[in-house]
Simulated scan of single mutants.
Amino acid sequence: MLTPVLEIGGTHVTAALVDTAEPALAHPAHRLALPAQGSADAILTGLAEAASRLTVADGAAWGVAVPGPFDYRRGVGLFEGVGKFDSLHGVDVGAELRTRLPVPPATLDFLNDADAFAIGEYAAGAARGHARAVCVTLGTGVGSAFLDHGVPVGSGPLVPPDGSAHLLAYGGKPLEDTVSRRGIRAAYTRAVAAGPGPVPDVRDIAALARAGDRSARIVLDHAFRALGEALAPWLCAFEATVLVVGGSIAGSWDLVEAPLRVGLAEGPDPRLAHRLPLRTSRRPAEAPLLGAAWWARRGADESGTRTGRWS
């Protein structure tokens, strides 16, 4: 059975049909622009427009990957002051989609976009075969998911609060002040005492580092070592069997891996730096779609209600 999914990003929505038996996309995905700053009706209309591009069977179980803050159990937006989707604050997105989708769904399973990415990598990517996988995405921020046999763990003593690495601190400040597009660009600007004018993006700073720019290399080394130091205690506590790194910054893996391992060696078990497999995403574009479908299919195959299920 093909499972329909929506992946909601900051500026786009992607709709796809996933063959969960493979798992793989059954057809090319449909990606449409989404007015993140628009009205609730405009955003919901955009989601419905993307969904209408799919040919969906009656009674399908849908998977919907959406960034937080969001009440995944109730399907209600909690966005407020985060710069996107503020008009969905308090909106019952599940109820709205149920009336707007071209074919009424049997269920809607909402899950966090970072969790969807990780589950996709667990189902068909770099985390496949690993019982205790930790996946992080590096870009505008630090997304994360701690998976126990493919199921996100968001509470308890073995994971950070909500399973979220972006809530961790480094040097007394939020980790994202150091490890993020914003943090890396700001650090490079300070390092070279840059005046007014365009600030190089991370890919440009990476290119400068490869070309011998010492300041660029120091900035990147510091950022990824900080990531390793912040994650190390939790990777040990969770007894992770793999760390998968995705997101746009992972494209500079040749500059990420070595300082990341140095940071891991600063944790409670220095052997972690050499023992733990580090992998980059194998399905960076498809993973959130595959993960959303896997989660929806899992929910359809189980009885009862679980976190994220809306029916």
Score class of each variant (00 low, 15 high):
residue 186 A to L: 10
residue 227 L to S: 04
residue 300 A to S: 14
residue 185 R to N: 01
residue 84 K to S: 05
residue 71 D to N: 14
residue 305 T to Y: 03
residue 163 G to L: 02
residue 97 L to H: 01
residue 127 A to F: 06
residue 215 S to C: 10
residue 307 T to F: 09
residue 246 G to S: 07
residue 271 R to W: 03
residue 31 R to D: 04
residue 20 T to F: 00
residue 17 L to T: 08
residue 101 L to M: 14
residue 254 D to H: 15
residue 229 E to V: 13
residue 223 A to M: 07
residue 218 I to F: 01
residue 175 L to V: 03
residue 73 R to T: 15
residue 257 E to A: 14
residue 26 A to P: 00
residue 48 A to Y: 00
residue 163 G to I: 01
residue 263 G to V: 07
residue 103 V to H: 05
residue 226 A to V: 08
residue 39 S to D: 12
residue 299 G to F: 02
residue 195 G to D: 07
residue 106 A to Y: 07
residue 199 V to E: 14
residue 254 D to R: 12
residue 308 G to E: 05
residue 221 D to H: 11
residue 66 V to G: 02
residue 306 R to P: 00
residue 283 R to A: 14
residue 246 G to A: 10
residue 163 G to V: 00
residue 157 P to V: 05
residue 218 I to T: 12
residue 203 R to T: 15
residue 259 P to T: 08
residue 157 P to K: 03
residue 38 G to Q: 07
residue 174 P to E: 04
residue 207 A to Y: 01
residue 162 D to S: 05
residue 59 G to H: 10
residue 251 G to Y: 12
residue 283 R to H: 11
residue 200 P to F: 10
residue 149 H to V: 12
residue 117 F to P: 02
residue 202 V to N: 11
residue 35 P to S: 06
residue 53 R to L: 10
residue 110 F to Y: 12
residue 43 I to N: 01
residue 165 A to K: 04
residue 285 A to N: 11
residue 149 H to S: 14
residue 65 A to F: 10
residue 113 D to A: 06
residue 132 R to A: 06
residue 163 G to E: 12
residue 211 A to T: 03
residue 150 G to P: 02
residue 142 V to G: 04
residue 141 G to W: 11
residue 274 H to S: 15
residue 97 L to P: 00
residue 155 S to W: 11
residue 216 A to S: 04
residue 171 G to D: 13
residue 310 W to K: 08
residue 105 P to I: 09
residue 12 H to Y: 09
residue 303 S to Y: 06
residue 57 A to I: 03
residue 256 V to Y: 11
residue 175 L to C: 03
residue 129 G to P: 00
residue 172 G to H: 13
residue 45 T to R: 11
residue 140 T to A: 09
residue 33 A to C: 00
residue 171 G to H: 13
residue 151 V to Y: 00
residue 16 A to S: 08
residue 2 L to M: 09
residue 21 A to T: 12
residue 133 A to I: 01
residue 297 R to N: 07
residue 200 P to E: 13
residue 171 G to A: 12
residue 144 S to C: 02
residue 96 E to T: 06
residue 142 V to Q: 06
residue 189 T to M: 05
residue 248 S to M: 03
residue 181 R to P: 00
residue 279 R to P: 08
residue 181 R to E: 12
residue 274 H to R: 12
residue 126 A to M: 02
residue 43 I to S: 01
residue 181 R to G: 15
residue 207 A to E: 14
residue 272 L to C: 06
residue 190 R to S: 06
residue 280 T to L: 04
residue 197 G to L: 13
residue 284 P to V: 15
residue 258 A to C: 00
residue 185 R to G: 07
residue 100 R to Q: 09
residue 150 G to W: 04
residue 55 T to W: 07
residue 111 L to V: 10
residue 233 P to S: 13
residue 91 V to R: 05
residue 242 V to S: 02
residue 220 L to G: 03
residue 160 P to R: 13
residue 300 A to G: 04
residue 63 G to S: 06
residue 167 L to N: 08
residue 251 G to W: 09
residue 12 H to A: 15
residue 257 E to R: 09
residue 155 S to T: 15
residue 130 H to D: 04
residue 147 L to T: 15
residue 248 S to Q: 14
residue 166 H to E: 13
residue 285 A to S: 11
residue 140 T to S: 10
residue 179 V to T: 05
residue 173 K to I: 01
residue 119 I to M: 08
residue 25 L to C: 03
residue 23 P to L: 09
residue 243 L to V: 02
residue 187 A to D: 08
residue 231 L to S: 12
residue 201 D to V: 13
residue 19 D to K: 10
residue 84 K to A: 02
residue 109 D to Y: 13
residue 64 V to W: 07
